[in-house]
Simulated assay, not measured.
Amino acid sequence: MAISKIMVIGAGQMGGGIAQVAAEAGLQVVLNDIDRGFIDKRLSFISGLLDKNIAKGRITAEKKTEILARLIPSTDLKDAAGVDLVIEAATENMALKEKIFRTLDLVAKPGVILASNTSSLPITELAAVTKRPELVIGMHFMNPVPVMKLVEVIRGIATSDDTYARVKELSERMGKVPVEVNDYPGFIANRLLMPMINEAIYCIYEGVADAESIDTVMKLGMAHPMGPLTLADFIGLDTCLAIMEVLYEGFADSKYRPCPLLRKMVKAGWLGKKSGKGFFEYSN
C-alpha cells in the first residue's frame, strides 16, 4: 500500500511539527485533536513559520499555499478510516495511548501502519492492545521536528520487516535520518540523555555547583550546544521525570532513580520554560 495520506494525532508542538514536515514532503495530512481550537492555533503557527521561510527565500508563496492545503483538520478519530498510516503524538500517557490505539485498530483499514511518537513508552505493549501488532511501530521524532533530522524507528517484538521498511522509507521521504532501535525503555536517545540530565540535577541537589556552572561545564568542556539543565527546562521537568520513571521501573536499577529535587520541582509546578520557572526563569 503506497503511503500518500496520513493522520497525525495531537496538534501540539510535536504533532504539529510532524504534520508540517509531512505536508512539506507532499503528503496529505489529517491533523487530529480533541479541540478544533488547538488545530487552528497550530495551523496559524505553521503558517507563520512558512512565512519566515518565504522571507528567507527557501520557499515561494505558492509553495506555502500548497503545503497548507494538504493539512486537513479533524476532531474525530474515525477520520483514520481514510488514511494510509497514522502517527500518534498525544500526551505521554500509556492509558491514553492504549485507548487511542484500540480505537485506531477498529477504524483504520487493514494493512494500515499505526505508529507512535512516544519518547519512552513500550511499543510492544501498545501493539498488544491491537489485532495488528505486526503493523505497530515507534517513530520518535526530535524537537523541533522541522529542524532536527533524527527519527528513532522503534521495533516492537512483533513489528514486521515490511512495516519497518515502509516507515524507514517514509522517514527518508520526510527528509529525516531513521535509526533502527529495538524496544527497550527509553530507546537510545532518552536512555542516554535523561540519566545525564538527572545526574546534573543531583549535582545541584548535592551542592556541587549551581545550574549556570553545570551548564557552562557541559557547553564549554563537552561542546554541547545547550547545557543539560537548560535542555531539561525546554523539554519540561514533568516530562523528564516521567521518562526517568519509565527507565527506573523498566530496568529496576537504582542508577535510574529520579533525583528527589526533580520530584520536588515538579510537585511545585516548576516545570521549566512552559511554566516560566525551572532551573532558570523565563518570561513567557
Rank of each mutant, 00 (worst) to 15 (best):
V153T: 02
N198Y: 10
G278P: 08
I188Q: 12
G272S: 02
L192H: 11
N182Q: 15
G276Q: 08
L50H: 11
G186R: 01
R58Y: 06
R58D: 03
H224V: 07
G111Q: 02
D210A: 03
A22R: 09
L135H: 05
G26W: 11
F234C: 10
V151K: 00
R70N: 07
Y256T: 11
A268T: 02
K109N: 12
A223C: 10
Y184L: 15
N93E: 07
R102H: 09
A268D: 10
K56W: 10
K274F: 01
L126W: 03
I34M: 06
G278I: 11
G48E: 14
G138F: 07
G276M: 07
V107C: 03
A80F: 03
F38P: 04
K267P: 00
M1L: 07
I154E: 05
D33E: 07
E199L: 08
E249L: 15
I201R: 05
I154N: 00
D238Q: 04
I59A: 09
Y256P: 05
G15C: 03
C259T: 08
R166T: 00
M139H: 00
Y248W: 14
T159G: 02
A268N: 04
A23G: 01
M139P: 02
K277H: 10
D233I: 04
F234M: 15
I214G: 00
K78S: 15
W270Q: 15
V129Q: 01
F187G: 03
A223E: 11
C259Y: 01
T230C: 14
K64D: 08
G57Q: 03
L77I: 13
V112L: 02
N93S: 06
M14C: 03
M148K: 09
K41C: 07
N284M: 07
G10R: 13
D79N: 07
M194P: 06
K219Y: 07
K264Q: 15
D35Y: 14
L135V: 04
L262P: 01
W270M: 14
N143R: 12
I72N: 04
V107H: 09
D79L: 02
I235H: 02
L68C: 06
I54R: 10
L229N: 05
E66F: 02
P228C: 13
Y205D: 14
M94E: 11
A128M: 07
P133H: 02
P144D: 14
L50C: 09
M265R: 14
D33Y: 05
G10L: 08
A95Y: 05
I243E: 10
V136I: 10
W270D: 14
L262C: 06
Q20L: 13
K56E: 10
